[in-house]
Amino acid sequence: MALVDPKTAPGAATFPTEASWSDASKDLLCLTTGSWRTEKPIVVVEKCTYCGQCYLFCPTQCITPGETYFPIDLTYCKGCGICAKECPTQAIVMVADGDEADGSPADQT
């Protein structure tokens, strides 16, 4: 298929402007880095001492303080496993992603 001129092809463009500008309050173009993952972290809530090491170490900053533990936003978690490695009480375990029978708690899938 031939390339079209994005300036003269209405509706064909991802970007409404000449440069790569997007409105962050609406449709900021971003990467859902969670799709890169092969393993995902599961928090064993009973073992969590709320020390916050996982929150401090997470390179993608997808771990944030919750009520009793630190939930992980799997939309952006790349599955690097640093949180599981650093957790002093082994309250985070890495499991193969995409496995329906992994026993994940309902709020951590």
Partner: peptide, 18 residues
């Protein structure tokens, strides 16, 4: 909240190059 140089993967990237 403006994004400049935000990732335009796939067709977005090609559009910007073109």
């Amino acid at each position: 909240g403006m994004g400049a140089g935000a990732h335009g993967l796939g067709t977005g990237f090609v559009e910007l190059r073109r």
